[in-house]
Design a protein around this nucleic acid. Sequence first.
DNA 1: CTGAAAGCGCTTACAG
DNA 2: CTGAAAGCGCTTACAG
Lengths: 307, 307
Amino acid sequence: MAHVAPATRDRVIEAAARLGWAPHFAASRLASGQTHTIGLVAPYFDIWYTSQILAGVESVLSAAGLDLVIYSVDTPGNRQKFLDRVPSLQTRIDGLVLVDFFPDPIQVAQIEESKVRLVALGEHLDRHPSIAIDNYEAGRKATQHLIDLGHTKIGIVGTEQMSVDASPVLAARIDGFKAALASAGIEHRREYSLPGMLSVNDGPRSIIALRDLDDPPTGLFYLSDETAIGAMGEARRQGISIPQDLSIVGFDDHDIAEAMRLTTMCQPVRYLGSLGAERMLEASVVGPLHETVPVELVARGSATTLR
Amino acid sequence: MAHVAPATRDRVIEAAARLGWAPHFAASRLASGQTHTIGLVAPYFDIWYTSQILAGVESVLSAAGLDLVIYSVDTPGNRQKFLDRVPSLQTRIDGLVLVDFFPDPIQVAQIEESKVRLVALGEHLDRHPSIAIDNYEAGRKATQHLIDLGHTKIGIVGTEQMSVDASPVLAARIDGFKAALASAGIEHRREYSLPGMLSVNDGPRSIIALRDLDDPPTGLFYLSDETAIGAMGEARRQGISIPQDLSIVGFDDHDIAEAMRLTTMCQPVRYLGSLGAERMLEASVVGPLHETVPVELVARGSATTLR
DNA sequence: CTGAAAGCGCTTACAG
DNA sequence: CTGAAAGCGCTTACAG
């Protein structure tokens, strides 16, 4: 404590060292009411996006001496179950980082009844610090890139995921996609929403589905790089050349996108994580409550002008 | 508790529900001495290997109602610092999962003084449950695959990582590599240890380094798929065809390996994680203390017969 | 089977 | 500036 005489302090420190004393966490937490740990909820931990967020959050929190406990919550059903646990979580964590976790206003109120600090990553949230990209604009720009290259028959892959996690993030990207088409006077055809979720293993299905179309698209917008990369593998197997036969644009700028020459919408994922952790550490919000981090189209080789 | 009358139990449960009561974690932990949380230490959380381990561990622990707290410890220096914290950790976690964390016997003794349960993943550890692949054998087989294809000029990439994390895992793979060469009567040339660590971004360096060799290798064994994938991108940029000009074999069977047609040594990473978590849950070890999970060479298109 | 007491190891006023 | 007391909210014997 602040007002202890130096001599006394030294004696205490020396004795503690000699006895190998270490503070008992549970005891200090019970007495102080502080847990010194932050929770992080995310749908999956085995995908690239989450691993980058996690690394960003972890580096900032550990530097600040805080612990990180992780919760995996993958379906809307699990989401409600998790929220029901929040009252008991308030005695275990000081704050909660929401990663692609989309509570409705009632659910937010439920969390607010507990005293855990809240920071949302990936989507904006009322009354709490949140950091996200502009998914609408990102989806629009990615699609516009294909339009600028002369494509008019443009498909989209990854929309199936919507039915699983009801993600407003994906909804915004899809809206951006549609807006780009509309403003170019292109009609969005239903059959150009190709099957596929957001994993590598799901990529091939989008390419296989092309065979069933009489008038297949010449350009595809993938809502995730991992799906696009899986698709590139399948395209090669089928003898479909990218970008000669098919232009594709991904989303994320995955570590591997460059090696694959994948044109993609880059979002600064790790930075999202570290910034989120910093907002968590701030006692009160100084800047704007909602921050939008920039995205940028990285043109590599997978999308080219329509011949 | 077991011997409470049903009527009383119901009244208590009803009252708790009515009052919105939830147990206070710190209090119950202080009183019981149990933390109901497991720690996981790993060098990096932003690589594929760790993300798969984490997902495997998390799924088993959360099903068992345990919390997971993660610690990132990347250098040998940090490793000692982390170990020095272990005495204080014993009041915060019941067990510790070591991922690619290689304590020497003295350090193990240090952990054993605390009462945390220990499970090691990736390398075997005396006196504690541990699960690993046979890295020597895996390295040998991967190299033998290239030898069987007729290659005699065989290089290796990823050995630089050794100087950073002094990994016995990599050391064993490298020993297996050398053993395969030796038993085929092939001398290992120093200049065939090409620069590169274990990340995607480090892959290109191995390909660039080939230019400086008068008599370059025709086959390369990459100690990680991520490095191999980065290298494949660089090879394409340089007009080096894989496998026509250069055969490569990776290690891991990364999600993306199939899309890249990468021949690789598959290790069941996620299973390693879930099995490790199960061992952590067991009150005492029933089976053998050390388990070795199988690996398998997956031949895709990136390595072919020498012409 | 029930209820009340003691104790887990800290932190936080508080008296001196 | 120091020391002792009370209290955090549980769990664990223990008496009845």
